[in-house]
Nucleic acid binder design. Structure first.
Lengths: 144, 144
DNA sequence: AACAATAGTTGACATTTACAACTGTTTATT
DNA sequence: AATAAACAGTTGTAAATGTCAACTATTGTT
């Protein structure tokens, strides 16, 4: 069976979710970009005791200068705090604030809602396979 | 079964493919961005007899001013031509050139290669279900 | 003829992409 | 101990993207 190129397929898909989320969030008066929320979610759910900007950049596979700018905005708005690591003053440890927790709770709830609506009509097995393929593709991509 | 929010999942995936393609293309001395190639592919494979910028913007769900800027670059580089519609001078009909065809052939070949490599280890049925879910999600998103 | 709608263009601003070059700090090497 | 290398973060920059408003030229409707 011929495989359709992923680029064109994902290209068609990639803007959909952030746009739906942006529409929903702006209705709630929240204007953070998708990547800003992604950073906040990473900080919120990180299992690392001491998450630093470099970790976030690696996680997102984005340039550290972009992560810095995003972290700057989130800190300015009181969603996270940056603390110099006493054991290594090169590093800034990033923690989420109560305000940040509230925002990520809201974002996550909206995200789940939209996801459920998009998935209506699919079986559990189809959804399971979908996520399996995505994880597989990610893993393969990291081996390149 | 609990559904993971698509945003975080796709957020992790979305940059992967364009980045792999960009790496591959730059090795070949080609520096067009992913979206520029997407526009070229749309022009190439469009079944419409007279494709205009507005059609491309709708297809990509992007602002027409962005499409204009991309079309400007592709035209400047001789990959497409823009012809005023004799029946409606508001419209510019966009056609691909021979040079554009060559580039899209190359892009498509590389895209298929990378897709195949990413899909190694998955069954035909898993891949089929993956595309089915993606098309389903796109269709649902358009109904919002 | 007047008005509404469409296609495209231009401008503006914020964000992202992607890289280089820099500073300060820590670790490794000599 | 002194120096070099590596690391984390910062700053700057140019190009591209995202997004919107306002505009011009043209076509469609009333």
């Amino acid at each position: 069976m011929e495989i359709q190129p992923l680029g064109m397929i994902l290209g068609g898909l990639k803007g959909i979710f952030p746009r739906l989320m942006a529409n929903r969030m702006s209705e709630l008066g929240i204007t953070y970009t998708f990547d800003q929320m992604v950073v906040l979610m990473i900080v919120r759910h990180s299992k690392q005791k001491q998450l630093v900007q470099q970790d976030i950049a690696e996680h997102m596979k984005k340039d550290k200068s972009l992560v810095l700018r995003i972290v700057d905005v989130l800190e300015k708005d009181g969603l996270i705090v940056r603390i110099t690591d006493p054991n290594d003053r090169r590093r800034n440890i990033i923690n989420i604030t109560g305000k940040g927790v509230d925002l990520t709770d809201l974002f996550y709830a909206e995200e789940q809602l939209i996801t459920k609506e998009l998935m209506v009509g699919l079986t559990d097995e189809e959804i399971y396979t979908f996520y399996k393929v995505i994880n597989h593709v990610k893993t393969r991509a990291e081996e390149f």
